[in-house]
Every structure is written in structure tokens, then in C-alpha cells.
Design a binder for these strands. Structure first.
Lengths: 178, 178
DNA sequence: CAATTAACTGAACATTCGTTCTTATAAAAC
DNA sequence: GTTTTATAAGAACGAATGTTCAGTTAATTG
């Protein structure tokens, strides 16, 4: 995972991976059928963990509270896993067609949950956005973007970042402060 | 550019590029010293174009108008160049150290211009955000994210998308509607 | 202790990689 | 019409690629 995140799937050889774990290249094939499976397993586990973490959130009847919980989970989950996230976004094109479809379905399932929250908020009149689909994409892009600059131990703590991002997201969807 | 965007720099061979332009691999070296320069030139041109387009925007004394113009330019510039943008974000790690530094400086110069707008707006009390640096990163991530889903000829036109994104961004920074 | 299973080495396979170089061809310049 | 220049082909280079496999070592089982 570290090598894929650092140099990219295509640029990492099985021999480099083997060297890093202190083994010869051939020995890796006792654990994986091929290089592609290494990538797919990484991404599938990542998306599975994300969906599981989302499923564990308590149901929030209030759209504002639901959005806040979603944003907080997304931010924290991603900030804690920079390598996995990097791979999940950068290496989609290196998946075989079948594997790509599977990952894409998981990603879609996750996005749909955010959109459901937004739609509920729009219906109840607590959110003010023109298009729930675009708002979904914008929110996810904004939150995931934290990984391009956030580092543990930097100027701001994770919970400060959570607070600031939540304020911006709340304002972006036109919700009143609680 | 198309090949790099589609398969990634590391996964594209000089022979593939040559085949695509109807020539043998050796002939490419009449035009480029090496493969790395192909990537660097692409990214440098892209960032140069972006900075030039930004420089051509008229000076806006009003922070809200300035932010709107910036957002509109960013969105349009990126939506019109999906391949360049994809490469600019995905292939940074495949640049040599020297080349990476140069591109990173250009990117930083661009971000600084957005942050200057946000800071002016905060000072004048027309924007309500907790941290100008984070707001800069959040805004750029949100706007650039349009490239993950927007396609010309889709459900929404580019100017509709511009309108919707501007509303969300305006709300995100806590600015009143004009 | 003997037999079996698991794990690993290291060589080998056929391809492919970026790049160089000699040679050939066609266009431009004089 | 001859010479120079630009452009390309195509073979060649050593190195590296993912993967396979026979042989070796160590651990586990009976």
C-alpha cells in the first residue's frame, strides 16, 4: 500500500514489493494470484471499511444532524488513511474492467447515502441548494480535498479541521447554524 | 496527453505514443529529449495557461465580485480541459524533483491569488470563514471536483453548472447574495 | 523420529521498457 | 543540379517487467 501510494501502481514492481517485505519476488505468489489482486484487495477493503463505518452511524432524523455526522465521519475516515485514499482515487484506471465495476458500485452506494441526506433536507426546507446531485459531488470533493494538505501534527488538529469544514459545508448547503 | 490521461504516465510507452502519431519510437527523439520532458512540458503549459488566464481577469475591488470571477474562470478552465487537469493532478509524483518544484511553485502562486481574495473579503467583513487557508483549499477542491463528473453535452450546461457552484461557494464563505 | 506441509530461493521465461545509432529518404538551400 | 539539412526507419542496447517452477529449507504433524 505504501509503495503504491508513493510511486503509483504501474511504477511499482513485484520485486520492489518483495524487497520491502524482505522476500524474493517469487514468494509473493504464495499470497496473491497476481499484482492486480493486490491493488483490488486494497481498494475493496478500503471501500468496504468506509461503507461499514457509515453503516455504524446512528440514524439521524434531522437532516442537519445527519449531514454533520456524515461530514465528520468522511473527514476523519479520510484524514486517518492518506495512503488508502490516495490509491482509491488515483488507481481506478489500473483496475481490470470487472474490478473497476465492483469498486465503482461501492463508491456510488456511498455517494447515494449523502445525496439521500441532502434530498431529505431540501424537502424539509432546511437546505437551500439548487441540485442535490451536484451538491453531493461538491461536498465530497471539498471534504476529500482535505487529504491534499492535512497532516497529523500540523498547524491544526483534526477536530479543529472538522469544525471548520463543517461550518463551510453547513453554509454551502444553506443550513442555519444549530 | 490523451494517452497519459487515459492510462497514466508510467503505463504509457514511447512506442504507444509513436504508434498513435504514426511514427516509429526512435523518431520521437527528434522532438523531445526524453519521456520525462513530455510530461513536464504538458504540465508546465497547463499551469502557465491557467496563470495567464487568471492574469487576464480584470481587477475587481469588490471581494465578492472577485471571488465570483475567480470561481467562474477556474470552473470553465478546468471543465474545458479534462485531460490536462487529470494529468496535472495525477502525475505530480512522476515528475523529477526539479520539475516537481517548478510545477508546485506555479500551483502555489495560483492558490495564493484565491487566498488573497478571501483575506480581503474577511477583512472587509463580507466573508465569514474561520481560516482563509483552509477555505482556499476547500474552494479549489470543490471547484476542481467538477471534472470527476461533468461532461459536455450532459444533463446540465457549463453555465448552469457555473451558476450552481457559485451559489454553493458564495454560501460556503458566508457572503450575502448580490 | 519420519512424513508431510508450508514457505522461500533463485534461476528462468518471454516481453517490454527508454534510449541510441546507423542508414535511408525527401525537402530546402545554394 | 549539387549540397546541405531535416526527418524518419528500424535494428540494437542493456535493463527491467510479471509470472512460473524446480529445488531447498524449515516447521508441523503423526
Amino acid at each position: 500500500m505504501r509503495l503504491f501510494a508513493q510511486h503509483g501502481y504501474a511504477a511499482v514492481s513485484m520485486r520492489q514489493i518483495a524487497r520491502d517485505v524482505g522476500v524474493q519476488a517469487g514468494a509473493l505468489y504464495n499470497y496473491t494470484p497476481d499484482k492486480q489482486s493486490l491493488l483490488f484487495d486494497l481498494m475493496q477493503t478500503h471501500m468496504g471499511d468506509l461503507l461499514a463505518a457509515r453503516a455504524e452511524l446512528p440514524m439521524e432524523p434531522d437532516p442537519v444532524a445527519a449531514l454533520k455526522a456524515f461530514a465528520r465521519l468522511h473527514l476523519r475516515f479520510h484524514a486517518e488513511r492518506p495512503d488508502e485514499v490516495f490509491i482509491a482515487y488515483m488507481e481506478l484506471r489500473n483496475l481490470s474492467d470487472d474490478n473497476f465495476t465492483k469498486i465503482e458500485e461501492m463508491r456510488r452506494a456511498y455517494e447515494d447515502q449523502l445525496e439521500a441526506i441532502l434530498r431529505a433536507g431540501i424537502e424539509q426546507g432546511v437546505f437551500r441548494v439548487a441540485d442535490s446531485k451536484i451538491a453531493t459531488m461538491a461536498a465530497i470533493a471539498m471534504l476529500t480535498g482535505v487529504n491534499t494538505w492535512f497532516r497529523q501534527g500540523g498547524r491544526l488538529s483534526l477536530s479543529e479541521v472538522e469544525q471548520i469544514y463543517w461550518e463551510m459545508l453547513r453554509q454551502a448547503v444553506g443550513a442555519q447554524s444549530e
